[in-house]
């Protein structure tokens, strides 16, 4: 199928214009993070001199490194927790037969109807009463169990041939061993997809870290950015933008690497 030249030109124009519009806010921020204050104040588009002062300033004046480390720890812990819990649950729904399985599956579905935002008050009280405010556990625990992840992996586990399970039973392999040595390696791509998704969403969390942290000890970088924005003077836009760029770089890299996989995986988990 060949595309006529005229249509090709129209498409490229639309693609380029759209790309520019979508990326403009991030691009402007990126440019500004390398500008001197004079450049920003005079409304320059492109920096006359490239300066790294904004980046130095943001690391000097703020415990940004600390925030970044906290965000990394929180996101990785949530990611691992989600992968473990979702894969265990998905395994039970695919490979194990027992009374009440369908009911439990319904329970998992019903969790999708409860928005986290609506249950945030008791959750805050629970974490507070357990003395987990300002702790990694308090930040991560509520996010381990995940219906979406379970469904996505269940969809994938279903494609593993049942004969493998039968063969493993004859060989005397128990459920847990089969799960570890056969199912998990075979579902590697789905696990990676879910992992990328889990990391992205955890890194970008806002409401819960805002409530569950009161000091810098475990505060994540998103809340750090809010502080940066409220504490900096209005004429320090370069510093604020440098902070913003640092915050989005890890997730943007992850997204660029995993975009194709994420797109297929999300569609599978969501639609089927």
């Amino acid at each position: 199928m060949k595309i006529p030249l005229r249509r090709k030109v129209i498409f490229y124009i639309l693609l380029v214009v759209s790309a520019f519009l979508v990326f403009a806010p991030a691009l402007i921020a990126f440019m500004m993070s390398f500008m001197t204050n004079q450049d920003i104040m005079s409304g320059k588009l492109i920096p006359t001199t490239i300066t790294f002062d904004n980046y130095l300033a943001v690391f000097e004046r703020f415990p940004l490194l600390n925030y970044l480390l906290n965000s990394f720890i929180v996101s990785i812990v949530i990611m691992i927790g989600q992968l473990m819990l979702s894969s265990l649950a998905a395994y039970a729904f695919v490979f194990m037969e027992f009374k009440g399985r369908n009911f439990l599956f319904f329970v998992f579905i019903s969790t999708m109807m409860v928005p986290f935002e609506a249950s945030v008050i008791p959750n805050f009280q629970t974490i507070r009463d357990l003395n987990l405010i300002d702790s990694y556990a308090g930040l991560t625990l509520p996010y381990f169990a995940m219906a979406f992840g379970t469904f996505l992996l269940r969809q994938n586990f279903k494609q593993i041939p049942k004969e493998l399970k039968e063969a493993s039973e004859i060989a005397g392999m128990g459920h847990f061993k089969f799960y570890l040595s056969v199912v998990l390696p075979m579902a590697k791509t789905s696990l990676i997809t879910l992992g990328v998704y889990g990391f992205l969403t955890s890194w970008n969390m806002y409401l819960w870290p805002l409530l569950a942290t009161t000091n810098d000890s475990v505060r994540t970088v998103q809340i750090g950015l809010k502080q940066l924005q409220t504490q900096e003077q209005l004429n320090e836009w370069g510093v604020i933008m440098a902070g913003g760029i640092i915050v989005v770089i890890p997730t943007l890299i992850l997204l660029f690497l995993g975009q194709k996989r994420l797109q297929q995986g999300l569609a599978e988990g969501a639609i089927k």
Binding site: N204, K226, G244, I245
Partner: peptide
Amino acid sequence: YSSTMGISVAAGSVF
């Protein structure tokens, strides 16, 4: 086009 998925609410708001 997919890039804004990697931009957090906090960073996007600042931009």
